[in-house]
């Protein structure tokens, strides 16, 4: 089993935009460590001079004609939210005024 610290779990949780409590951190630390320990076995495979594969279709730069075509109606786009104001989505404030915490 690979070792993983509580701090590392808290760090990946932050990267993942997930909020975890202490109990969850301890639980996930054990579970993630066991999976990471398992996938480490890939180090046994010789991949010298092997190119990575990110997809299997072999297609490169698929192009289509750039043209006007029908899209969603405004009301369809906002169908599933109550965070609507004048055809914009209302989101939490990201930037804060200078000096304010």
């Amino acid at each position: 089993m690979a070792s993983l610290t509580n701090e590392e779990v808290a760090h990946v949780a932050k990267l993942s935009n997930l909020k975890l409590n202490k109990g969850e951190i301890a639980k996930f630390r054990r579970q993630l460590a066991s999976v990471i320990g398992f996938v480490k076995k890939l180090q046994e495979v010789n991949t010298e001079n092997v190119e990575p594969t990110s997809q299997t279709t072999g297609l490169v730069n698929v192009m289509r004609k750039d043209g006007v075509c029908p899209s969603f109606k405004i009301d369809d786009v906002f169908y599933s939210t109550n965070q609507r104001l004048n055809n914009f989505f209302v989101i939490e404030r990201l930037l804060k005024e200078r000096g304010k915490k």
Binding site: E8, V9, H11, V12, A13, L15, S16, L18, L20, E24, F28, Q31, L32, V35, I36, V39
Partner: peptide, 12 residues
């Protein structure tokens, strides 16, 4: 949550 974090970890 496990999979999201595992993914963030291997990409970090």
């Amino acid at each position: 949550k496990r999979r999201i974090m595992l993914g963030s970890y291997v990409l970090s």
